[in-house]
Amino acid sequence: MLFSALLLVSACSPRLQQATFVLLPDTQTYAEKFPEILEAQVNWVAEEAANINLVLQQGDLTQNNNDLEWQRVQSAFKRLKGKVPYVLAVGNHDMGSAPGKFADVRNTELFNKYFPYQIMATLPAFGGVYEANKLDNAYYLLETGKHKWLVLTLEFGPREKVIAWANEVVTKHQDRTVIVNTHAYMYSDSTRQTDKDYWRAQGYGIGKDTGPDAVNDGEQLWKKLVKKHPNIRFVFSGHVLNTGVGTLVSINDAGLPVYQMLANYQEGVQGSVKGGNGWLRILKLDFKNNSISVQTYSPYLKEYRQDEAHNFKIEHALLKPGKKK
């Protein structure tokens, strides 16, 4: 009930024309080696809950998909219950036939054990799932002031049948601005992932599946889902190494801009320290002035990144759902 109250307060506050989302990418190294950094991130979110509308996590919650790491992740996110809504994604490190097997098969038993449908479905903003009792593909409905949102969180390498389901969900909610949250979509050169890039879902064991179970990369997801709907306006992802960041604005079939962002700070990303040193992203949407500001902050270090790739503003953004021409 507390989250419902928060929504009501938000709807009556002077901040009607603003929304703040926190992106919490690939926490895998924290779960494996530095749980205190994940705790610092989540504690900061809990402390700032009155100023945050939503937390979006982009997958690879764990490094080795084992019970110890899942216990650490579960313990951290429990602190947000009743304070701020959060949405999780499944990454390639969160699935497999056994701990340490990364997406060789589409098995997410431990993810669904530690974040069970029976509990997650009772939280305010929860909308529904693709598969019964599984959180791998789910949608959430919330409001920030007068602005209505649909958040779709999709599995690593979304299957053909999952994309078909996602199209149906978006079509039923044309009055809502849609955010797609998924593990792999953008590449570090600020383009969508294609067959020319590393770390595509097709390169893992699940990539061998065919027919309705065939996986899709970023470019395929764009063509089959994102660009087709006037109200899908944001896509957030992680997964990719190199610089770990990328930003792309593309025009959909309705002539509206779609804001696509990659952020990843895990071990293996250039310059990474302690698996990312707690860097997270803060997105502030200003509906009155049509702008999107992006800041990168570490609650662990208690400092902001100042370089342009991590601290920037998009002016003249079109943030309303829009209608088909």
Score class of each variant (00 low, 15 high):
Leu6Ala: 03
Leu7Pro: 13
Ser10Asn: 09
Cys12Phe: 02
Leu16Ala: 03
Gln17Ser: 06
Ala19Ser: 07
Ala19Trp: 02
Leu24Ser: 14
Thr27Trp: 02
Ala31Asn: 06
Ile37Ser: 05
Ala40Pro: 01
Ala40Gln: 11
Gln41Thr: 06
Asn43Met: 15
Trp44Lys: 11
Ala49Gly: 13
Ala49Arg: 13
Ala50Pro: 06
Ala50Asp: 12
Asn51Thr: 10
Ile52Trp: 11
Leu54Trp: 03
Thr62Pro: 03
Gln63Tyr: 12
Asn65Thr: 09
Asn65Tyr: 11
Asn66Thr: 02
Leu68Asn: 02
Glu69Asn: 03
Trp70Cys: 03
Trp70His: 04
Trp70Asn: 01
Val73Glu: 10
Gln74Val: 00
Arg79Leu: 14
Leu80Tyr: 08
Ala89Arg: 07
Ala89Gln: 10
Gly91Phe: 03
His93Met: 03
Ala98Val: 03
Pro99Val: 08
Gly100Cys: 13
Lys101Cys: 13
Thr108Cys: 12
Lys113Glu: 01
Tyr114Arg: 07
Gln118Ala: 12
Gln118Val: 07
Ile119Cys: 06
Leu123Gln: 15
Ala125Pro: 06
Val129Pro: 10
Tyr130His: 12
Lys134Arg: 15
Leu141Met: 01
Glu143Gln: 10
Lys148Val: 05
Leu154Met: 05
Leu154Trp: 04
Phe156Asp: 08
Pro158Cys: 09
Pro158Arg: 12
Pro158Ser: 12
Glu160Thr: 14
Lys161Gln: 14
Ile163Leu: 15
Trp165Met: 14
Trp165Cys: 09
Val169Trp: 05
Val170Ile: 15
Lys172Gly: 07
Arg176Asp: 00
Tyr185Gly: 13
Met186Asp: 01
Ser190Lys: 10
Ser190Thr: 11
Thr191Arg: 05
Gln193Glu: 00
Thr194His: 07
Asp195Leu: 11
Asp195Ser: 11
Arg200Glu: 09
Ala201Gly: 00
Ala201Phe: 02
Gln202Trp: 07
Tyr204Glu: 04
Gly205Lys: 01
Asp217Ala: 04
Glu219Ala: 00
Gln220Glu: 15
Gln220Leu: 09
Gln220Thr: 12
Leu221Asn: 09
Leu221Ser: 07
Trp222Ile: 01
Leu225Lys: 02
Lys228Asn: 12
Pro230His: 02
Pro230Gly: 04
Asn231Met: 10
Ile232Pro: 04
His239Thr: 09
Asn242Trp: 02
Gly244Met: 05
Gly244Glu: 04
Gly246Leu: 04
Ser250Asn: 09
Ile251Ser: 11
Asn252Lys: 05
Asp253Arg: 00
Ala254Arg: 14
Leu256Glu: 06
Leu256Ile: 08
Pro257Asp: 10
Gln260Ile: 01
Gln270Thr: 04
Gly271Leu: 09
Gly276Trp: 06
Ile282Asn: 14
Asp286Leu: 01
Thr296His: 04
Tyr297Ser: 04
Pro299Phe: 15
Pro299Leu: 13
Tyr304Thr: 00
Gln306Lys: 15
Asp307Tyr: 09
Asn311His: 11
Asn311Glu: 13
Asn311Cys: 14
Ile314Glu: 13
Glu315Val: 15
His316Glu: 01
Ala317Cys: 03
Leu318Val: 14
Pro321Trp: 00
Gly322Ser: 15
Lys323Val: 13
Lys324Pro: 14
Lys324Ala: 06
